Amino acid sequence: MTPPILAGEPWEYLGADEAIDVEHDLIVAAAASLRTGDDLAFAEAAFALVRDEVVHPLDVRDRRPTWRASDVLRERVGLCYAQSHLLVALLRAGGIEAGLCYQRLSDDGTGHFLHGLAAVLLEDHWVRLDPRGPDVGFSATEDRLLYTVRPELGEIDYPKVYPSPAPVVLDVLRSHDDGVALCEDGGLPGALED
């Protein structure tokens, strides 16, 4: 993986938007409760909360669609994108620059889907973290991802760190009312429109 490329201005990685609702009372309260040490300890605690307490709809057959960080925190369910939205919102609420990244992965059939990740600025460098599953650990020094990209299958590690969710991701999340069907019926976006 090449070093990440920032797609926004530095201050945007601390800002709020409709999906990364940093100033929502639930996000502020959760970030405050997690902030018991330095930035590194806080980032690890935020990562653990999302990884360990927010389930993926496919893992538990929970059809509730969530996309806004505060909704993900309240409902404790969300696709990889939504989990990343929550992690980024918590980190930003705690004063740490964070953004969103994506991978294009093969569905091991004839298509591809986007996978959502978070990126965080720790100890003067960006690392990508994947809160999707319990098998992924936290690191402040290197990327920790659930999936290894296989270029021979057309998979891509997109190098940009975005301050806001990709429009193609938000469009899909907002237009579906069943998170399980969205995954199983091939409704996930297949690539970034960059």
Rank of each mutant, 00 (worst) to 15 (best):
A29Q: 09
A29F: 01
A29L: 12
A29N: 04
A30S: 12
A31L: 12
S33K: 14
L34S: 06
R35I: 11
T36V: 15
G37M: 12
G37D: 09
D38Q: 10
D38V: 11
D38E: 14
D39W: 04
L40E: 13
A41W: 05
A41I: 13
E44A: 15
E44V: 09
A46L: 10
F47P: 01
A48S: 04
A48W: 01
L49E: 03
V50P: 00
V50Y: 01
V50R: 00
R51P: 01
R51E: 08
R51L: 13
E53L: 14
V55P: 00
V55D: 14
H56M: 14
H56R: 07
H56E: 11
P57I: 11
V60N: 06
V60C: 11
V60L: 11
R61A: 14
R61C: 05
R61I: 09
D62I: 11
D62M: 06
R63Q: 10
R63G: 00
R63W: 02
R64H: 07
T66L: 14
T66S: 11
T66I: 15
T66C: 15
T66G: 04
W67D: 04
W67C: 07
R68G: 03
R68S: 04
A69H: 01
S70C: 05
V72W: 04
V72Q: 04
V72M: 06
L73Y: 08
R74N: 04
R74F: 06
L79K: 07
L79N: 08
L79S: 13
C80R: 08
C80P: 04
Y81P: 02
A82T: 08
Q83I: 08
Q83W: 08
S84H: 03
L87V: 09
V88E: 05
A89E: 00
A89Y: 01
L90V: 13
L90K: 01
L90S: 02
L90R: 01
L91F: 10
R92Y: 13
R92L: 15
R92T: 13
A93G: 05
A93Y: 02
A93W: 00
G95N: 02
G95T: 05
G95A: 07
I96G: 05
I96T: 13
A98K: 00
G99D: 05
